[in-house]
């Protein structure tokens, strides 16, 4: 499949060939789609280009849970949607995936889930920029009186930019639900743990 730069990349991990074909057909118009028939193959395929992984939980050989654990050890902001046979509860959400789909997966549901996961990545990206600018603003505020700063064109530009990012951030996940909230907070803490134990960072 052609790798088009302007499209997000989705990796489909599923052992049933018929399902792989189905998912690919649903996704290939909007995304660059990679496929893997099992856990080992998924880990081989996995790299920084991948934005979303659609991961079947029950596969012969390496299970979805094992794949997930290994994926999480690699530094990446990719999102993982687990495909399960039964609906998990909150505690399962805290196990490490970002969203789940229950079989049989329907087209609309799949497209919507992937779109939401990409919005989450977008939220993270905007937030990261907002942090950088807010830190800069905070440093300036601590160094000079606000009256003086407000006369400064550069500071005003910084404030405008922060306002703009805030507006975009607010519009990115307007209907965030509780599962999403929990998964996002878990990702934040996961990243923090990663910086303590994993030295392969620096990609962010």
């Amino acid at each position: 499949m052609a790798d088009r730069d302007d499209q997000p990349t989705v990796l489909v991990v599923e052992d049933e060939h018929a399902l792989v074909e189905l998912y690919v057909r649903w996704l290939e118009n909007d995304y660059t789609v990679l496929t893997a028939g099992g856990g080992e193959e998924a880990l081989e395929q996995f790299d920084e280009r991948i934005d979303v992984v659609l991961l079947d939980r029950l596969m012969p050989g390496m299970s979805g849970d094992e794949v997930l654990e290994k994926l999480r050890k690699q530094v990446s902001n990719c999102k993982v949607a687990m495909v399960t046979a039964v609906e998990p509860d909150f505690d399962v959400i805290s196990m490490g995936f970002d969203d789940y789909l229950t079989k049989p997966v329907e087209r609309e549901e799949l497209l919507e889930t992937i779109q939401r996961l990409l919005s989450r990545t977008q939220f993270d990206d905007i937030e990261q920029e907002l942090y950088a600018l807010s830190s800069k603003q905070a440093a300036l505020r601590s160094s000079k009186p606000i009256e003086e700063l407000e006369e400064n064109e550069e500071f005003r530009e910084l404030q405008r930019r922060i306002e703009e990012l805030r507006t975009r951030l607010n519009a990115t996940l307007p209907d965030m639900d509780d599962d999403e909230f929990v998964a996002m907070v878990r990702d934040i803490e996961g990243d923090t743990d990663g910086t303590d134990t994993d030295v392969s960072g620096g990609s962010k």
Binding site: L173, D175, M176
Partner: peptide
């Protein structure tokens, strides 16, 4: 904390 507060306030907003 900065990230957490952003996500939390987004949940409060939604």
């Amino acid at each position: 904390i900065f990230r957490f507060l952003h996500v939390f306030t987004a949940r409060i907003r939604s």
